[in-house]
């Protein structure tokens, strides 16, 4: 294991009833890096992301976060150090925006209420939603809900943030506000793994793009090379389709 890796994924495998979805995936992430995971539907991107924090338990392989192995026995503590942003937000619908951002700080990390409140306000400001602290999720637009869910993840002070298609449940006009928040985070040095079809984000914010297909990593590299002169036929074909439709 390379010693400066924040997240180190080694040879992860996962099958559902005999269907091999991940056939041995490995990659690493240094502090402050943003990697964008792309690939056709069904290629296993979500499964990979969920294996990293054991929302889906991998069949084989190892995952290290800052040198500590992610195991079933320490999973709650490890998850607290990894933020996860869902496609459909999953804000806690009975809690106000402020409480959504506070509750896990208090209940999981044991932060004092006052400190948690302060932190929550800071993160809400960061995503541009200070004025919505007292609203309930149902009173927000999809874009606002997704920004709250990013703030909720940030408030836990995570080592790494995992995004699973954070904008694909949003109308095009709301996608921009979420992408801007993510770009800002990348620029501020947050460590992130992002599954997305937003190629503008990938081009601008990614340090590296990972192209997955059929349970394998086909190719990875900086956006400049991937977008312009990818060596792989499959990657080029996929990027062409995305460019036309996405």
């Amino acid at each position: 294991m390379a010693d400066d890796l924040i997240l180190d994924v080694q040879d992860v495998k996962k099958a559902y009833d005999g269907l091999e979805v991940l056939k041995g995936i490995g990659f690493g992430l240094r502090k402050g890096e943003t990697k964008v995971l792309i690939g056709p539907s069904g290629s296993g991107k979500s499964t990979l992301l969920r294996c990293i924090n054991h929302l889906t338990v991998p069949d084989a392989g190892r995952i290290y976060l800052n040198g500590d192995e992610v195991l079933d026995t320490n999973i709650d503590a490890m998850r607290a150090r990894m933020g996860f942003v869902f496609q459909d937000f999953n804000l806690f619908s009975h809690l106000t925006v402020l409480d959504n951002v506070r509750i896990c700080q208090i209940k999981v990390n044991g932060t004092e209420k006052a400190a948690a409140t302060q932190r929550a306000h800071r993160e809400l400001e960061r995503v541009g939603l200070s004025d919505k602290a007292d609203a309930y999720p149902a009173e927000l637009s999809g874009g606002q809900q997704q920004r709250v869910s990013i703030a909720r993840a940030l408030a836990m002070d995570p080592d790494v943030l995992l995004f699973d298609e954070p904008t694909s449940a949003l109308d095009p006009e709301l996608t921009g506000e979420v992408v801007r928040v993510m770009q800002q985070l990348a620029a501020e040095g947050m460590t992130m793994v992002v599954v997305t079809h937003e190629m503008s984000f990938a081009r601008q914010a990614a340090d590296e793009i990972i192209f997955m297909e059929d349970g394998h990593i086909i190719e990875q590299g900086p956006p400049e090379t991937m977008f312009t002169d990818s060596t792989h036929e499959r990657t080029r074909a996929f990027l062409n389709v995305i460019a036309e439709h996405g």
Partner: peptide
């Protein structure tokens, strides 16, 4: 998704039931 999000934030199953699922 509510349970899933709570677990993803590091809550144990019992905490997630108590603080997230039960109140709803």
């Amino acid at each position: 998704g509510q349970m899933m999000a709570a677990r993803a934030m590091g809550m144990s199953k019992i905490m997630a039931i108590r603080h997230i699922v039960f109140p709803q």
